[in-house]
């Protein structure tokens, strides 16, 4: 089990703006295309509220999976 907020990136919508790993590098890292990837383990203390990170994605591609399995997602309009 990783110890950071249960972020999930929808790969269909991520196009590599890089906001997630810029704002929360402890939880995300870029892949070679510059797309965001959730780290396996959190690299250092959390720097932002998880909701702030979710809202910062221009594509609304980040979800926060809650314990019950429901996803709280930025509004994909």
């Amino acid at each position: 089990m990783s110890d950071h907020p249960p972020f999930k990136i929808d790969e269909e919508f991520c196009v590599g703006h890089g906001r997630c790993y810029a704002l929360a590098p402890e939880s995300f890292q870029p892949d070679e295309m510059g797309h965001g990837v959730v780290r396996d383990y959190r690299d250092g203390p959390a720097t932002r509220e998880p909701g702030v990170v979710v809202n910062a994605c221009p594509e609304s591609a980040i979800e926060l999976i809650t314990v019950g399995g429901d996803a709280e997602k930025g509004s994909q309009s």
């Binding site: 196009v15 703006h17 890089g18 910062a56 221009p58 594509e59």
Partner: peptide, 16 residues
Amino acid sequence: PHVTFSLGAHRCVGVH
């Protein structure tokens, strides 16, 4: 988030 670098498939390739 602002959309200055556009969105979707044509997101500015030079964003970084």
